[in-house]
Design a protein around this nucleic acid. Sequence first.
DNA 1: TTTTATTTTGATTGATTGATCAGTTTTTAT
DNA 2: ATAAAAACTGATCAATCAATCAAAATAAAA
Lengths: 199, 199
Amino acid sequence: MKNKQYLIADARKEQIIKAAIEVLRDYGYINTSLSKIASKAKTSTGLISYHFSGKEDLMNNTLLYLAEHEKASIKEKVEKEQTYTGKLMAFIEEGIAYRGTKRENITALLEIVFNVRTPNNVPYFRVEMNPEEELNVLLEEILIKGQQSKEFNDFDSKVVAMIIRGAISLSMSLPQNENDVRFEDYSEKVKKNVLKMIK
Amino acid sequence: MKNKQYLIADARKEQIIKAAIEVLRDYGYINTSLSKIASKAKTSTGLISYHFSGKEDLMNNTLLYLAEHEKASIKEKVEKEQTYTGKLMAFIEEGIAYRGTKRENITALLEIVFNVRTPNNVPYFRVEMNPEEELNVLLEEILIKGQQSKEFNDFDSKVVAMIIRGAISLSMSLPQNENDVRFEDYSEKVKKNVLKMIK
DNA sequence: TTTTATTTTGATTGATTGATCAGTTTTTAT
DNA sequence: ATAAAAACTGATCAATCAATCAAAATAAAA
């Protein structure tokens, strides 16, 4: 029963990670301490150190958890579509929608990516193979295959991918108190403008 | 002689701000301490507290210094152009070029904007009237006036402005070890794609 | 049941931080 | 020249932090 043996540990780990996400969202990385996470998770700092090898390890696991969540959400929508145009529109739509509905997740992810650094002092957001990078690969793949299938015309796929990523990122700066209509409106208009670039 | 009276103070303030920019670039916000800034500026922590009311005040002044620098650099190029197409292309070109040549400035600016919060715990990058916002206003103004003069066709100026801003921001993720050619290439291609959206 | 392994607590430690302040030097004004 | 104001130093302080650890509680295995 090797599985059951670690069930408690895994559940506790996820509980701590979820608490970390809340604290990161509420206080920002600089004001996120293990004791704040511990009290949010209704446990002790010692337990965090027991399940994770340190604060950095906790942040790495939290980042992985968040990136995986986002990636799964977007991939699912993309795979439902048959055409590359459909896949691309789904990528944009879900990328923006995710930032509207799962705002706290993206907020926490940004706090980590902009503050944690490798042992060589390189910020995560400069690291080539960070977890977010997988979504880039997916996006560029859609663009290139769409060109090969003649659905899209000729353009630099890397540059257009960056423009799309930038537009999705900036949806975070949309006013959040309003309802979803603003996000949907932004999403529709971004899609229209992207089509102008690639068709 | 009211002017001379404050010359030393102003010079010292700028010296400390420049040291802060270097430390922010090298260590990131979380590892930026007053003592690190003091030793980089070859002075003492006490002096920083003498010239600034605290760490937050220093960061605010540094942010202002950086935003002013960038704004002046872009505005200068934009104002040289006569047509709105010219102004828009200049905005994009200088926005991207600035991120290539003054990388340390933008790096420090991002460290501040993503970490400092208002007394109400609102992150700076969520504050409506942050210093960066002035560039937005300029960009939207170019787009709207370009439409009014029939240089541009019909589109949502706020959305297109966001797409452009996103593309400029992401130029920071271009590999930096290479020479400027990558930035220029990216710049040219972004401009072409933007023209597809607005013409 | 007894033994062993896993999980949890909370107090403690050593290090670092931003800020303060008494005292010194330098500049400016009279 | 003298007084006053401004600029500056460096030691010190209280607060906070991540990490540690001995001891206790709980669960699993024998």
